[in-house]
């Protein structure tokens, strides 16, 4: 059970949160082709490495935020606002 650092509430156990999957996915408009729309719905990167993902602090402040997490070690490299661009991580 990870410990996530909610930007408002501080470090909390993972079971207070819900994971919202990959971040920074642009939502296509109605004019998008079936393929583009299908990729938006179902295709995701599955990196063995740093993954940028959204979490919501459901049992706390209820806010969404972004996390850059290493999928193998679970090391959290960055926590940033849901509307921010992803930070550069060396």
């Amino acid at each position: 059970m990870m410990q996530l650092n909610c930007p408002w509430c501080g470090p909390r156990d993972e079971n207070e949160f819900a994971c919202g999957g990959s971040s920074h996915i642009a939502r296509p408009g109605l004019a998008a082709s079936d393929q583009v729309w299908g990729e938006y719905l179902f295709f995701r990167d599955n990196p063995k490495g740093v993954h940028r993902e959204r979490w919501r602090h459901v049992q706390g402040c209820g806010q969404w935020f972004n996390v850059a997490r290493h999928t193998v070690t679970h090391e959290v490299l960055s926590v940033y606002a849901v509307t921010d661009a992803p930070p550069k991580l060396g």
Partner: peptide, 13 residues
């Protein structure tokens, strides 16, 4: 309610 919050916080900000 969670879905509404997601749309408001992440898309229709």
């Amino acid at each position: 309610a969670a879905s509404f919050e997601e749309w408001l916080q992440c898309e229709y900000v």
